[in-house]
Computed example of a mutant assay.
Amino acid sequence: MRKLSVLALSLVFLLSACAPNFGKQNEVVQTKEEDKGKAIIPKYNISDSYYRTILPFEPSETRGLVVNNINTRYDLNEFEMGLMRIAQNSFDTDKYYFREGQEIKAKTIKAWLNRQYTPEQLKANNIKPEDNIGLNPVNTGTAEEPSSPIYLAHILEHDYLTKDDKGNVSLGGVTIGLALNSTYYYKVQQGEGTIQKEEKIDAAEMEREGKKMAEEVIKRMRSIENLENIPITIALFAQESKSSVVPGNFIAYATVDKGSSKLNDWEKVNEKYYLFPSSDAEKDHRDDETAFLNFKQDVEEYFPNFNGVIGRAFYGGDQLQELNITIPIQFYGKTEGVGFTQYVAGLVMEHFPAYISVSISVTSVDGPEALIVRKADADEPFVYIYQ
């Protein structure tokens, strides 16, 4: 058994990223926003994969909307973090600082997420023609048989700030994420109540409609104060169904040059999540799933009546990048949990290639029991056992 490092949970998360940059102190800077004032750039950058966030933290007006419009917590996390990954293609983490979206207001986002309306529908719903700015297509059918689905579920804005040599911080770039529905859910009347129906949306159709909407979003953004000349990156996210236990993924992104309203060529995003074990994983990544199944089999040998090991695998291209495993189990003593955690940590080193990051969460009915993290190319895992 390899030597295990049992650390405080905060240290696990700190070390699970790339080596932090502790060389810089907190820096007070001057903002150029309407509320001119002081802001702080934190001294710690825990990883080159993350942006430092300007303080004090400014929540976006739309922060509550994303929870209502995105199908699952898995989609919500990936939508936000995946958009930040895409931003790194345009905005260097060493030169830009992150801020939640402040430029497109919540009222505007809500209006853009609506359907277009016919003149008759405008009159029936007492909507002013100037408010008929929904990006989703008009429904010329009925509630029970809509003529088209809702393609666009949510719009997410991330802002990226730059600092000049005088310490002034100002908006330097924006990324926009368009969350698209792969499944359209709608309610129909049945008797005295309603039932929910669903319609699968063809992937090519979803992408085509998303790109059309992206062009319109960019045109509208150029008419918003502060966004007339800012470089923009816009990306399409295909969210999964409400029943999915893995998140959706970004499928494409495009950049817009400073001062332009024309999108540059679309770039394909080759990322995807798989559930282990599953028929999709077996079909597309047989070797990786075999390694997982061997790991699962060894876990079950420790507890013969147990078979609850589930993995969520993230692929960049055809390469497995990260594997997150959940092991729900019932222990009858703390020492039993410690012994099991030691055993599983050893299995991680034996079964999974060094180039992938693996994290394992061991849980019971009482809550989390242990966390095991083996970063890519690490010599040994970090282990935390909850007290």
Rank of each mutant, 00 (worst) to 15 (best):
P149K: 01
T108V: 10
K123M: 01
E144R: 12
E145M: 09
V138I: 14
N132C: 02
L161F: 14
V174F: 05
K200H: 04
G172K: 05
T175E: 04
I176D: 03
E157M: 12
Y185M: 00
G193S: 15
I195Q: 14
Y151M: 11
N181L: 12
T183G: 03
E199N: 05
K123Y: 06
N168C: 04
A111C: 05
N114V: 04
Y117N: 10
D131P: 02
A124Y: 00
Q116I: 05
Y160E: 03
L171C: 10
R115G: 02
T162W: 03
K105S: 07
T140A: 07
G167T: 00
Q196C: 06
E145Y: 10
G141N: 07
V138Y: 02
L122Q: 13
I133H: 09
P129G: 09
G172D: 01
S148K: 15
N139Q: 11
V169G: 06
K166V: 05
L135P: 07
R115A: 06
Q196L: 08
R115E: 01
V169L: 15
T140G: 02
T162M: 09
G141S: 06
Q189H: 11
T175Y: 04
I150S: 12
T118H: 12
L171H: 05
D165E: 15
D131E: 14
A153L: 05
V138R: 02
K197W: 04
Q196D: 01
K107L: 08
G173N: 06
K107S: 13
E199K: 12
G193K: 14
K200D: 14
G134S: 08
